[in-house]
Design a protein around this nucleic acid. Structure first.
Lengths: 245, 245
DNA sequence: CAAATAGTGTCTATCAGACACTATCGA
DNA sequence: TCGATAGTGTCTGATAGACACTATTTG
């Protein structure tokens, strides 16, 4: 800290605290939405499942910290996949260790072989989001997970991030299955295919076809350069909708 | 802090820091988008314009802090208006006083008479967003402002927050003018009116009409209960759009 | 051939965008 | 009566949603 401002900073009715970076790492496995959870090896919440995360280090940007955590927990290079900050969680009593504000990040990853064990021997594994009932996770991590899942659902409507869930090359059916897994509702194959094909740059055909499967061989695609989906692909789910009668 | 965890917390390769809450308070004045800025009374950036804000206090949630700042800077009751968190800004060198991470909030307010002077005699005033060129604001506040404005633009597409800019009762023309001021592009009056009227709960007619103005008297509306806009009202702006040819 | 999966075509209701006309005030 | 502002009607092209059919593989 620059000494010139030391007095300003000392005059505090404000508070020193720590920032945690917690990761909502989503993937689709077996046609279901999964998130990476670790089993806590230390108190508080020892033995309880929690989102992976860690403290912000000195001279580290929160985004850098998120990239580091992602690398440590999954071995994934963050530059390759979707990484996005969610609103912070900062209730004063959210962590019994003291004042810790969480900066959560949403990461969207293709199906991974198996996560590497956490650095401090915490057991990391994929858990189906639908199986994680309320209050199963440590701290307020269920709320953070909810925020991450809802953000992912909304992102699928307006962007092409769904391809970030897919291992290249992928079929149209696999891409559609991502939407179904994340949204939790069926999607019409014909209309979906038309929408994706008509959106320039969403996917790029490889010219190859999938072999070995039963049925007609599916065309294989790679991710295209497009990012935004315009007009959006809206889910039928009404949720909070107040609009047309 | 609970003594039981003191040792855990002491084992730090992580860092103690302060959280600032900075406010992007937007309103529409004279058909132009404005934001509230203060003139800094203390170093660093003494005399330079900055977004209003302050440090998070002990046992205070970031949202509570934002509500408090809003009240202090504008005298507005935050429960009445749109308040929404933006992604944090946490570059290690963003504040010369030391490690300070900013949690920015976007507030959307109706046109206010004039802001109350800031608590420490800082001069607060409305500035047209279009007049705030790059690097005019202290710290990284231009980036924060950009994030807030872009968020507001997107929110107008998908929600009914535009009414939060209006002083009740308001006319259809005033509501449309909000869209034009925030988006910075003209909106067709006929199509706009049809869209708003057909969206149940966007606005509620009062039965009154505006008097004293030249021209045909305009019907006066109040805010309706609807929140989401479905389907959205998309701006023509292509921006990042990669989609239809 | 049957089962399974992939892909295409068509119809319709809705909606966004463009645009011209009518309505109601003050001066 | 004129200027100014408010509000309504209509046409068209695009598209989302619903749905039936054809195509190509394996067993």
């Amino acid at each position: 800290m620059t000494p010139a401002y030391a007095s300003l900073v000392e005059a505090r009715d404000h508070e020193l605290l720590r920032l945690a970076v917690d990761m909502v790492i989503l993937t689709v496995r077996d046609e279901r939405l999964h998130t990476l959870v670790i089993e806590r090896g230390n108190p508080p919440f020892r033995g309880v499942a929690a989102l992976p995360g860690g403290f912000l280090r000195a001279a580290e940007d929160p985004l850098e910290a998120a990239r580091r955590e992602l690398r440590e927990e999954t071995g994934l290079d963050a530059s390759a996949l979707h990484l996005e900050q969610l609103p912070v969680f900062g209730a004063p009593d959210r962590d019994p260790r003291g004042r810790i504000v969480s900066v959560p990040y949403l990461a969207i990853a293709p199906d991974l072989p198996v996560p590497t064990a956490g650095s401090d021997a915490r057991h990391a594994h994929w858990a189906a989001v639908a199986d994680l009932a309320r209050a199963m996770l440590a701290f307020d991590h269920n709320d953070i997970l909810d925020a991450g899942v809802e953000r992912a659902r909304a992102r699928l409507e307006h962007t092409t991030v769904a391809v970030a869930f897919c291992v290249e090359p992928f079929t149209m059916g696999q891409l559609r299955m991502v939407y179904e897994a994340v949204w939790g509702e069926p999607v019409d194959p014909r209309n979906f295919s038309r929408k994706v094909i008509n959106t320039a740059g969403f996917v790029v055909p490889t010219g190859q076809r999938r072999v070995g499967d039963a049925g007609r061989p599916a065309v294989l695609y790679r991710r295209g350069p497009a990012t935004r989906l315009h007009p959006p692909m809206l889910r039928a789910d009404l949720g909070q909708m107040v609009g047309q009668p």
